[in-house]
Each structure stands twice: as structure tokens, then as C-alpha cells.
Amino acid sequence: MINGYSNIVFGYSNIVFGYSNIVFGYSNIVFGYSNIVFGYSNIVFGYFNIVFGYSNIVFGYFNIVFGYFNIVFGYSNIVFGYFNIVFGYSNIVFGYSNIVFGYSNIVFGYSFVINACTLVTTVYLFLANA
């Protein structure tokens, strides 16, 4: 558990609260600001998120998430792979059990999309997998 400021944390049962977070590995929970988190049981709350791998749940802002049990809530989302559920904004989601709700969606994998702004590729894959 690390609490504040210019955090760079490497290994094990990480819980990090605030500021310039970079966290590498294991039971990560990171709360706020310039987050980059690498691996394992990630839960990240807010700001310039980039999260790499495993049980990802990411809440908000400039999200880029790579892989595994992804659930991402809000803003400039790009999510790559696996049990994706993405809620809101400039979504680009690639692969597997995608459920995407709101705004500029581009989805490749296995889709369910509710939105006014999906691209033709997404609609084709949505209809093909229905």
C-alpha cells in the first residue's frame, strides 16, 4: 500500500492511491492520476489510464486496456482483448465477448453494440454473430 505522490511501485500486493502512478505487478488497485499499470488483478479508477493485463476493471478517462476480463467505463477507450464490456465514449474494441454501449464504436470481435455511431464493420459483425 502506497499512498501519495510520484508513485512508481514494482511488485506484489499493490494498492496505490494518488498521483503519478506507474505500477508493475501483482494484486494492483490504483486510484488516481497518471496511471500506467501492468499486470495482474488490476482495478484502476481514474485518469490517464493504460492498463495491460489480467482481471482489468478501469473506470475513467483516457483508457487503453489490453487484456483479459476487461470492464471499462468511461472515456477515450481502446480495449483489445477478452471478456470486454465497455460503456462510454470513443470506443475501439477488438476481441471477444464485446458488449459496448456508447459512442463512436468500432468493434471487431464478437459484438453486441447499442449506439447511434457504430461503423459498418461493426454492424456487419453484429449481424453475422446474431
Rank of each mutant, 00 (worst) to 15 (best):
residue 57 I to E: 04
residue 41 S to N: 12
residue 34 S to M: 03
residue 90 S to Q: 14
residue 28 N to W: 07
residue 49 N to Q: 13
residue 7 N to H: 08
residue 31 F to R: 03
residue 91 N to C: 04
residue 73 F to N: 13
residue 47 Y to R: 15
residue 11 G to C: 08
residue 112 F to C: 07
residue 89 Y to L: 12
residue 22 I to T: 11
residue 1 M to H: 10
residue 46 G to P: 05
residue 25 G to D: 14
residue 15 I to A: 11
residue 104 S to H: 05
residue 119 L to A: 08
residue 75 Y to V: 12
residue 74 G to C: 06
residue 90 S to V: 15
residue 81 G to Y: 02
residue 86 V to D: 12
residue 128 A to I: 07
residue 85 I to P: 02
residue 7 N to R: 01
residue 66 F to N: 14
residue 51 V to L: 11
residue 9 V to W: 01
residue 22 I to V: 13
residue 14 N to H: 02
residue 115 N to D: 15
residue 6 S to G: 14
residue 35 N to V: 10
residue 102 G to T: 11
residue 6 S to W: 08
residue 102 G to V: 09
residue 33 Y to T: 02
residue 11 G to D: 15
residue 27 S to T: 04
residue 19 Y to Q: 03
residue 59 F to H: 12
residue 87 F to Q: 01
residue 128 A to S: 14
residue 80 F to K: 01
residue 118 T to W: 09
residue 88 G to H: 00
residue 66 F to R: 02
residue 59 F to S: 15
residue 116 A to I: 12
residue 62 F to T: 11
residue 110 Y to V: 07
residue 123 V to N: 02
residue 84 N to K: 05
residue 59 F to D: 13
residue 115 N to Y: 02
residue 16 V to G: 13
residue 57 I to C: 01
residue 38 F to H: 11
residue 104 S to T: 11
residue 107 V to I: 11
residue 30 V to H: 04
residue 42 N to H: 07
residue 82 Y to E: 01
residue 66 F to E: 09
residue 39 G to R: 00
residue 93 V to A: 06
residue 9 V to I: 11
residue 53 G to K: 00
residue 122 T to S: 14
residue 13 S to T: 12
residue 19 Y to D: 06
residue 117 C to E: 10
residue 113 V to W: 00
residue 117 C to N: 15
residue 91 N to Q: 13
residue 33 Y to W: 03
residue 23 V to Y: 03
residue 90 S to R: 14
residue 24 F to S: 13
residue 48 F to Q: 04
residue 21 N to R: 11
residue 61 Y to H: 11
residue 56 N to I: 08
residue 65 V to E: 02
residue 95 G to L: 01
residue 126 F to S: 12
residue 64 I to P: 01
residue 25 G to A: 06
residue 33 Y to N: 04
residue 46 G to M: 00
residue 72 V to L: 08
residue 32 G to E: 12
residue 93 V to P: 05
residue 22 I to Q: 08
residue 108 F to H: 12
residue 61 Y to W: 09
residue 84 N to T: 06
residue 119 L to C: 01
residue 44 V to R: 00
residue 127 L to F: 13
residue 79 V to I: 14
residue 24 F to A: 13
residue 16 V to W: 05
residue 97 S to A: 07
residue 46 G to V: 01
residue 86 V to A: 15
residue 52 F to C: 14
residue 88 G to W: 03
residue 70 N to Y: 00
residue 99 I to C: 02
residue 55 S to I: 10
residue 119 L to N: 09
residue 66 F to I: 14
residue 17 F to P: 08
